[in-house]
Amino acid sequence: MGFKLLSKLLVYLTASIMAIASPLAFSVDSSGEYPTVSEIPVGEVRLYQIADGVWSHIATQSFDGAVYPSNGLIVRDGDELLLIDTAWGAKNTAALLAEIEKQIGLPVTRAVSTHFHDDRVGGVDVLRAAGVATYASPSTRRLAEVEGNEIPTHSLEGLSSSGDAVRFGPVELFYPGAAHSTDNLIVYVPSASVLYGGCAIYELSRTSAGNVADADLAEWPTSIERIQQHYPEAQFVIPGHGLPGGLDLLKHTTNVVKAHTNRSVVE
């Protein structure tokens, strides 16, 4: 069995187990497998329904001669939608809004960016022009300005110390501490036991640490421990890039980060 097929099978099995364990909360999309990078042309966006009122959005972007996937989250909030992270750029984010209108038909009224990198804030200006209120932590807003990236308009308070959590509509926002970046936030959907790890969490097929220019490698494993301790009931975990899975993604990420750190020390 090929690795790609095995990865998709694991996603399907995880979703099936969740649907059985929580039949009222989960209505997993039966329309197909989780979209992969090879299936999404740059400039297009796919939506994948995880649970009743919960979707991931998947886009792709060219970077350094390669094409990478990027995940975000959409959560229903009454007759409105909360968006977590842009679709990595203005063109993708405009396509995301169009796809949401086509498939869901509810307005996106608020959006949260989970850290300051372009795959999370690139497209904020498109959201703002569409009347979406954009939010991020003060740290993310400051770092985005320093980096020359787009800056969300509103500040999220109460997320300055490791372990801080605040309720934001249908989700809980959690600051686990520094990891992929010093400002990275985690998003949890309690009604569906869905954990969105953003770039602080890796997919299972990833074996290298990737972009760690703004990471705190020493603190990252401790931050992941905080996530595990705060959300032990999480059933569906979405990484910032690639295929979702279960809580095993947290341990896998820790292993990859520690291996990278150990290699760096040896070198």
Rank of each mutant, 00 (worst) to 15 (best):
V237T: 04
V42P: 15
L185H: 02
T109C: 05
N255H: 13
I100T: 06
T36W: 15
T182F: 15
G72H: 01
H180M: 01
E233C: 04
A111Q: 08
S30D: 14
L204A: 14
S7C: 13
V75P: 02
S30I: 09
A66P: 06
R141L: 10
S7N: 08
V11C: 14
A234F: 03
L243R: 15
T134Y: 00
C199A: 00
S30R: 11
P35A: 15
S27I: 07
R142C: 06
A136T: 06
G32I: 07
V132Y: 00
S139L: 12
D125N: 10
Y202A: 15
E225L: 11
E101T: 10
E203V: 05
G177L: 04
E225M: 12
D119E: 03
R206N: 15
I40H: 12
E233M: 11
V166H: 08
V132T: 07
G65F: 07
L185A: 03
S113W: 02
I74M: 04
P41D: 14
S223A: 10
P170W: 03
P190N: 08
S223C: 03
G245L: 02
S38T: 10
I50P: 03
F63Y: 07
A94H: 13
L10T: 14
S137V: 05
V126L: 07
S139P: 11
R263N: 15
F236E: 08
P170D: 06
A215W: 03
E145G: 13
T93V: 00
F168D: 00
Q61I: 14
G169M: 03
T14S: 08
T207P: 12
P244T: 06
L204H: 11
P239R: 01
A234E: 02
D248Y: 11
V265M: 13
Y12P: 03
A95W: 09
S181V: 03
E147A: 13
H230N: 12
L204C: 06
W55Q: 00
E172C: 03
T153F: 14
T109L: 09
Q229K: 11
W55C: 02
G169L: 05
A21N: 13
I40S: 14
L173Q: 02
V256E: 03
A15W: 06
L173A: 03
E203W: 00
G210H: 04
P23Y: 10
V266T: 15
I186V: 12
L249T: 03
A200P: 03
V11S: 08
D164F: 10
D85K: 00
E44P: 06
A209D: 08
G78H: 09
V257A: 03
N184G: 04
A165R: 14
A111E: 13
Q103A: 12
A19S: 14
S30H: 14
L243Q: 15
D85A: 01
L249H: 03
P190W: 08
G65T: 08
P35I: 12
G65Q: 09
E233F: 11
A165F: 13
Y48G: 10
D183H: 03
V171T: 06
L159V: 11
P244F: 10
S181W: 03
V237W: 03
T114G: 01
S31T: 12
V166N: 06
V237Y: 04
F174E: 00
T109S: 12
E44R: 12
A215I: 03
P41E: 13
S181H: 00
L5K: 15
A209T: 08
R46M: 14
L106I: 13
G123Y: 04
S137W: 04
I104A: 00
M1F: 04
P69V: 15
V171G: 02
L185K: 02
I238C: 01
S205M: 09
I58K: 06
S191W: 13
A133N: 10
G32D: 08
F168I: 09
Y175T: 00
V37D: 15
R141Q: 10
M1L: 06
L250Q: 01
D29C: 05
D183M: 01
L82P: 04
L217E: 08
G123A: 03
V112I: 09
V194N: 02
R128I: 10
G2P: 10
E219S: 11
V112C: 05
R226V: 08
S22V: 13
A111M: 10
Q61S: 08
A209K: 10
A21F: 14
G43L: 06
L6N: 14
L6H: 07
A200E: 03
Y175I: 01
D85N: 03
A21V: 14
Y202F: 14
A133Q: 14
D248A: 11
F236Y: 06
W55S: 00
V187F: 03
S62V: 05
N71T: 08
K102Y: 12
R128N: 11
G240Q: 03
Q229T: 12
A209S: 08
S30L: 12
L5V: 15
E172P: 02
I84G: 02
L250T: 02
D64C: 05
Q49P: 12
S162H: 11
V75K: 02
Y175S: 01
I74F: 05
P107G: 08
A59N: 14
H117K: 03
E150I: 04
A213C: 07
S205V: 08
L13G: 05
Y196L: 03
F63W: 07
P107F: 07
S208F: 09
G197L: 02
D85S: 00
L159S: 03
S38D: 12
A259H: 08
D79S: 11
P232F: 11
A165M: 14
T222M: 13
L217I: 10
D79T: 10
A25S: 11
P69F: 15
F3A: 06
L195K: 01
P152I: 03
L250C: 02
L185W: 02
E39R: 11
T153R: 11
Y202P: 05
P41M: 11
R226E: 04
H252G: 01
I17P: 04
N71L: 02
A213S: 10
T134S: 08
E39Q: 08
S38A: 11
L156Y: 01
E225C: 04
S27E: 09
V237Q: 01
Y68R: 03
I238K: 02
Q228V: 12
Y48V: 15
S56A: 15
S264N: 10
T222F: 14
T254H: 14
G246M: 07
D119H: 02
G245Q: 02
L6T: 06
D125K: 08
G163I: 06
N262T: 11
V257F: 07
P107L: 08
A98S: 12
L156D: 02
G210P: 05
L173H: 06
S30Y: 13
A59F: 04
A200T: 06
A59R: 05
L243P: 09
T14N: 06
H154F: 14
L81N: 03
D216T: 10
V28Q: 07
R142I: 12
A15K: 06
L127N: 00
S155R: 12
K8T: 11
H230C: 05
T153N: 09
E233N: 12
G246S: 12
E101A: 14
V212M: 07
G158W: 07
L127T: 00
L247R: 14
A94D: 11
W220F: 04
V42Y: 07
I40R: 14
G2W: 08
S205F: 12
G122R: 06
G72C: 02
F236A: 10
W220N: 02
R128F: 12
D216V: 10
T140I: 04
I151H: 05
Y196A: 01
A136G: 09
V11K: 06
F26H: 07
S162K: 13
E219F: 07
N211C: 05
A200Q: 01
L195V: 06
I104M: 05
L173Y: 04
Q61N: 06
G78I: 07
T253K: 02
A130L: 08
I151R: 07
D125F: 06
Y196P: 02
A165L: 15
P176R: 02
T114D: 01
N262L: 10
Y135A: 02
A90W: 08
I238D: 00
R226C: 01
L143E: 06
D214R: 06
L9S: 11
A51S: 08
C199M: 00
T86H: 00
S193Q: 12
H115G: 00
V166Y: 11
R263W: 12
N184C: 00
K102A: 12
